[in-house]
Amino acid sequence: MSGPDRGADRPLPPEIADPSPFAEPWQAQAFALVVGLHERGLFEWGEWAQALSAELKRPGVADDGSDYYACWLRALETLIGEKQIAEGADIDALAESWSRAAHATPHGKPILLENDPLTS
């Protein structure tokens, strides 16, 4: 059994009273994408665990677990890249497009990708 080499001397993060497993909605979505892609057969769960573990063992990961879903998302992007579904640059470009679309959408209206002024 080989434990992670970090965190050995540090205190445990406190229990959080909020019973929701997700701090923000995007975390729930990112979680569900992985479960959905696994159910679809895109990867074995062991493959996923390895990808996630690699992210969680990087230097600079927070002791309090607060960046867990950021690691989760990076692991998902890595697997998607390895499966040649999308490159990081494609994801960057589309994320920017979503941000522009949000900015161009008046309050109270649903944010749609076609609201991006650079693509419509």
């Binding site: 995007w26 994408l33 998302l73 999308a86 994801i91 994320a95 008046p106 309050h107």
Partner: peptide, 20 residues
């Protein structure tokens, strides 16, 4: 009176959802 903003993580997850 502000426009909508997506935080970077939300925008990124939306991008992945769109692609997938």
């Amino acid at each position: 009176d502000h426009d909508n903003e997506l935080d970077p993580m939300t925008a990124r997850v939306r991008a992945l959802e769109t692609i997938l």
